[in-house]
Every structure is written in structure tokens, then in C-alpha cells.
Design a protein around this nucleic acid. Sequence first.
DNA 1: CTGTTAGCGCCTTCAA
DNA 2: TTGAAGGCGCTAACAG
Lengths: 361, 361
Amino acid sequence: MKKPEKCKIITVYMQTFAKVSGSMSISIKDIARELQISASTVSRALNGAYGVSEKTRQLVLAKAQEMGYVPNLGAKELVNRRSNLIGIIIPETDFEVRPAFFETFPYITKTLRLYGKDTIILSFPPGSYNQGELQRSCIARNLEGVIVMPGFLEKHPILEEILRIKLPAVVMEENTLGPHCSNIGTDEVLGAYTAVDHLIRLGHRRIGFVNGPMSMVSICKERYAGYRKALEDNGIPYDEQRVINSDFTGTGGAKAARLLLERDPSLTAIFFANDLMAMGAISSLQREGIRVPEELSVMGYDGLFVGEYMNPPLSTIQANDAQIGINAAEMMIELINGQRGKSKRIRPSLINRGSTRKIDR
Amino acid sequence: MKKPEKCKIITVYMQTFAKVSGSMSISIKDIARELQISASTVSRALNGAYGVSEKTRQLVLAKAQEMGYVPNLGAKELVNRRSNLIGIIIPETDFEVRPAFFETFPYITKTLRLYGKDTIILSFPPGSYNQGELQRSCIARNLEGVIVMPGFLEKHPILEEILRIKLPAVVMEENTLGPHCSNIGTDEVLGAYTAVDHLIRLGHRRIGFVNGPMSMVSICKERYAGYRKALEDNGIPYDEQRVINSDFTGTGGAKAARLLLERDPSLTAIFFANDLMAMGAISSLQREGIRVPEELSVMGYDGLFVGEYMNPPLSTIQANDAQIGINAAEMMIELINGQRGKSKRIRPSLINRGSTRKIDR
DNA sequence: CTGTTAGCGCCTTCAA
DNA sequence: TTGAAGGCGCTAACAG
């Protein structure tokens, strides 16, 4: 007769403790005990599985609610072999030239959340990389897949490892693709085409092009292709003297612009492969007394919102970050569901501001 | 005599499968079986715990290496009650006025990694919020603490919930503080003080101030205090006609500047509470024929790197993002170790560029 | 120094 | 429809 008494006291004590501690969360066993049923029944009821009477189901649900039950995802993961965890890989750097793509980040996490996936951050140095690091991280946390943000150099070992190990991966910006690896990014050819076509429609025919560094091959190749195609489609002969490679920085852009104008002072417009170079060039040209856009139209690329506050405001091409982020997440889900890797390019849009103007020829 | 044979075949098959599958990772049991010892010994050896002979230790380590063993963190978490997982809370928005603090993000994850902590992203809408959401997420993933990135409005329910539930938290930008909640951010008073003091040293005495919106009370209050203190310390009388609240946007800044100059055309300098407003104002003023910095010195605040490419390049105050990120992570660790919440302000630095100039009075 | 046992929270047979 | 038993990968307590 004394045993039940004691048990009760212990129970009460435990409950109080649970409340105070806060972090000591309750489990399905606790619910089972309260309801005098088995833990398996509670589990079934909670998971909406068949084989539970509607009555007990409701009972369990109510009790769980009342006790503030929260499932332990880690434990679930252990038995289900499914972590609902997606790794997001970012280059671990204090990059001054921060990729605009960082903007896609919120959209990725938000979209994945819709599918019940959480995101975990993995950062790797863009330079040194120990073979197998990625694989180890993924196995350790039981990741279902990874999304690689831009910033790694072409042919970075991490990209090669992704293709080798069979782990669902979505890669942004770099042209990595495989059966378990999808690729998402901006349609760079179309972007550059749009920029140059815009200038041509404004009446320009002698258009310079300042491209990025050759170390970022794929991007530069594509923007170059867009530049050439726009000229071609409009019957303007290509002149390699009007094209130059720079380094994506402001000072680099300024230098490149000066060089281009020395080679051919009759240029009426220059298209820069990113906003930074364009801004640096405008700033520098203006100090030298060359007016933009009156004497020279300038077209950027990236859609940095600060371009709006330049004087003149910078015309540019803007990537559709929201679409890219959402698509990256959805492609990840598709890969997890067993679909084959695919590639997708998102159409960027033209932002026509004050640095480009119509000319009469 | 037949049994061993069969076992061997099965083992071989399993190994092959493990290799092919890739995701079917091996456990300490596998190592134990190979070495003909118990799993606990393997566990002890792997964790460097005492009570293992150096010989077996080496044996286990070698075998683990050979078999490519990776510990299952989820399983460890289950028994150790320690997830090594820190939540990073970001406002789920397509904010145009993106806080510069987003820059701290890489430093946080990088530093936490040093302590063996991984970071998981939780995004909440800045507006609507269901009571208990945060708590639920934390319990579900067994988080050890959370770091709240800026972007939530003052008195956002999520901040209040953090103070209520006893979960280690580090909050950035907003002045939230409690026994389990630390606070980190820029020393805004000092920042504004530095900006205004800089102008005064250049000879300016009639200095306007365009502050941010009153909805962001704490920040604006502090920058305002810095402005006043700098004037006071230099014996310049305060004139409320020279102060105005705007909205942190470029157009808002332009409007505010115009208003300030109408009220008092003799102003020789204006300090803006963020770079965007300063850039908008410069752009707009120049179109109206007012030269910067010849006729008016302009000081920004935020240290946006694009300010460098404006014409003139924008003088500004830059938050020390690296320090903030590193400190946030370290404060998190301290809280986890049981220390009480504390507050810390990081000293920002002055970036003197071309938009401010010396005057003779 | 090492093996056995038990259990973290959950789910899934297998019986009843 | 329900309960009991076993196990996911790992560690801790207890024997030996």
C-alpha cells in the first residue's frame, strides 16, 4: 500500500523539475504513462499512422498539446535514417567583392522550410581543402544533400568531390553537373545580351566591353558570348580591340575603361561585366572630366541596389535572386526524391537608369 | 565448419554494398566486429577516454581510418544530451535595406566551428509570430543556444520569448539582455560621436543631422546621443532645427537634406545616420548644382564598401563586422558554459574619404 | 584494461 | 486496435 504513494510523489517531483528545467523535454513515454497506454500507440497516433482508433488518437493529440510535447528530431533521424537536414556550403572568406548571390540565401532556407527541411551551414576555405572533408561532414550530420553557394574557384576540389560521391547537390554559378548534381544560376549569356542589346537600341554601335578575370572562366565566357551575339544579331562587326579583361574591382574597371578609350576614343558606350567596375570607372572618368552619360554611356551588371544612388544612377542587369533561391531549394528536393540532376538558368532583368542614354549617332 | 564460410560471404557482401551505397555509413560495431573486440572499447578508444591500452587504441584508430569511419553526431547527441548545434535566427524578408550586419554571418559560423559547434538557420517572419515557435524549434533540434541577427523590430515577440524561456541567446543590435541572454553590437554612440567629431576637426560648426526612423528607437537614440555629445564636447550649441528624422532610404535622405538646407542654408556639413541616405542626398544635391564636398561636406554611416565608388567617395563610419561576429560566437560559448549574460559594444572606425573636406570657417 | 548491460527517444515488426 | 520487444549508433555504469 505504500508503494503507489511513493511513486506518485516521484512523479510529481519529476513534473515540477521538468517545468523548472525547461530544457528537459517530455517524450512519448511521458504521454503514454499519463494516458496509461503504450508508447507505440502514442507514436502511431502522433504520426497519423493507421491502426489507431480515432478516440485514442484524439486523446493522445490533446495530451501532447497539453504537455507541450515536441518530438526529438535527432531520435527520429536515428531510426528513420532521414535527417531533414540540408547543408549549405559557403566559402569561408572575408571577401570584399561579396557575390550578390548571397542574397539568395534567405529564399533557399525559406523554401526548404516549406518541405520540412532545416539548413545547416558548412563553411570551407576557398583555397586549401582536405580530401573527404565534405563527405565526412555530411555523414556525421547525416545530411540529405548540400547546396553550394558561389565563391569557390572553378575546379575547386570540393566541386569535384561532389561529383564523385553520390550525394544530392545543387551548385550555384559554377557549371558543375552530374546525375546527383543539379546546377542553377543566372542565364549569363542572356544577361550580357540584354545589356548590349539595350545599348544598341539606344543608338550605340561602338560599344566597349570590360570583362572579368579569366580565373572565373564560365561566367566570363558566357557574358562574352552574350556580348558577341548581341552585336552579331544587330549586324555590328566585332572588334577585339574593344574588349578587355579586368578583375571585377573598382580600380580595375577604371583602368580598363581608360585603356579602352585610348585604343578607340570614338566609343560611345562601355559595358562592364559587373557593377563595381562600372562604378569605379564612372567615378574615375568624371574626375577626368568625361561626362556620363552625355559623352559615354555606361552599363553595369549585377543589379547592386546601391547603383541607384550613384550619380548618375547605374543602368545594370539584375539577377533574379528570389527565383534562383527558390529554384535551388526545389531542385534539391527533386534530387532527394531520386530525380536526375539537371541544369536551369534564370532570366535576369534589365534595370534602365541614368548612366545610359539615347544618341543620334 | 560451414558457418564461418557463410559469415564471411555475408561480410564481404556488406562491405561491397557499403562501398557502393556510400550513404550507408559504418558504425563502431563494424569496427568492433573486424577487430574482435567490444563496441565500448572502440568507443573509448575513439573518444580518447582513459581505460584503454595504447595498443588497442592505436589498433582501433587505424581500423577506423581504414574503414572510413565517421561518427554519427545524431546518435551521440541522443546519449550525451548535447547537440553542438547553435541556431541562427534571421528575419525572413526580402529586405531592400539589408542590414550591413549580415556581413558578420561568416565570422559567426567560422568561430563557432572552432568550438565544434555547427550552425543551423531558423528564419522567422519579422511580422507575425506564433507564441512558442522558437521554443519548439529549439527543443526539436535540441539546440544549445541561438544567435539572433538584426532585423527584428524592437519588442518583437521573439525577443520577448527569448528572455522568458531559459535558453542561451546572443542578440545583435537590439538591446535585449537577461541572465541567459547577451547582447552584442556596434557602439553607436561612439560611432556617431566619431563622425561628428571628424567634421568638427575639419572646421565645421554648423552641422546638420539626418537620423533614422523612430521605429528603430535604440539605434537612433544612440546615434543622436553621439551627435549631441560631440557638439557639446566641442562647445558648439545644439540647435534642434538642424536635426530631422528620415527613413534610411536614398530618397528619404535626399528629401531630408533639402529640408535641412531650406531651414538653414548656412550649414556646411550634414551627417547622415546611414550611407544610403547620404548617397541619395549627394546624388540629388549634385543634380541641383550643389557641389560635394566643396559647398557641403557629407558624412555617412555604415561603411558600405560601394561608398568607395561614389563620386565623391563617401566618408563614413564602419562597423567592425569581424569583431562583432567573433564576439557573438564567443559570448554564445560563454553562456553555454553557464556564465551570465552580458553586453558588449564594439568600436566602429572612421573611413575618411572624399565627401568631407576641411574648411577655413 | 576490457566486456556486458542498459538506455537515450523513437519507430516498426510481430503477436495478441 | 493495441502492447511488447527489439534496434537505430552511441556512451556510461558496472563487473570482471
